[in-house]
């Protein structure tokens, strides 16, 4: 009986531990993505990169914009693409318009392809770092400031930066 009881206790602890482990996977996954660029994740905070520009190399940056099906927004990049030198700072502008007659909070979620380029694509300033407030029917231009790391692998000559625009009003009201 005592043997049963201690074994049951151990197995229950294991069960509880694995339940906790399921939730522990959430921060672990974030760390994993930050380190590896898994899922095309890019940095979510400003970074300062001091590198000498490599003027002999040209990289094509393509901008793609999507709007989540639940978000009533227009969202577009001013340029379809631009050609850049690694190690040099560039600016790009995106515009978004709130199509609804109520105030909204929006969040852009970036993704970079190929994934091997994700860790070499550094954003100095980005509208995606924080959620953006929109008044009813407001349109605004949003800046992006980025730099491509000269250590970008040789075989990469095109980087696609993709943003999906989400309506984050309900999320924002939950996390004041």
């Amino acid at each position: 009986m005592n043997a049963n009881r201690s074994l049951v206790a151990q197995l229950l602890i294991l069960t509880a531990g694995m339940f906790g482990f399921g939730f522990l996977l959430v921060p672990l996954y974030d760390v994993f993505c930050e380190i590896t660029g898994f899922g095309g994740r890019t940095n979510a905070e400003a970074v300062v990169v001091a590198e000498a520009p490599d003027l002999n190399r040209e990289i094509r940056i393509e901008f793609l914009t999507n709007v989540n099906s639940y978000a009533q927004f227009e969202f577009a990049s001013e340029l379809d693409s631009m050609t850049v030198n690694p190690g040099k700072m560039y600016y790009a502008t995106f515009t978004a318009k709130n199509l609804s007659a109520i105030d909204k909070v929006a969040q852009a979620v970036p993704s970079v392809a190929p994934v091997t380029a994700a860790e070499h694509f550094s954003k100095i300033e980005c509208f995606c770092f924080t959620s953006q407030n929109f008044l009813a029917n407001e349109q605004k231009a949003m800046p992006l400031q980025f730099i491509v790391d000269p250590n970008l692998p040789d075989y990469v000559d095109t980087i696609t930066l993709q943003y999906t625009f989400f309506d984050a009003t309900s999320v924002a009201s939950n996390n004041p």
Partner: peptide
């Protein structure tokens, strides 16, 4: 109101698949 898998709130739907 959590955002484990909602991209708008900083989550990631791919994480659910993992």
């Amino acid at each position: 109101g959590t955002s484990f898998f909602l991209a708008a709130g900083g989550g990631d739907p791919v994480m659910f698949q993992h």
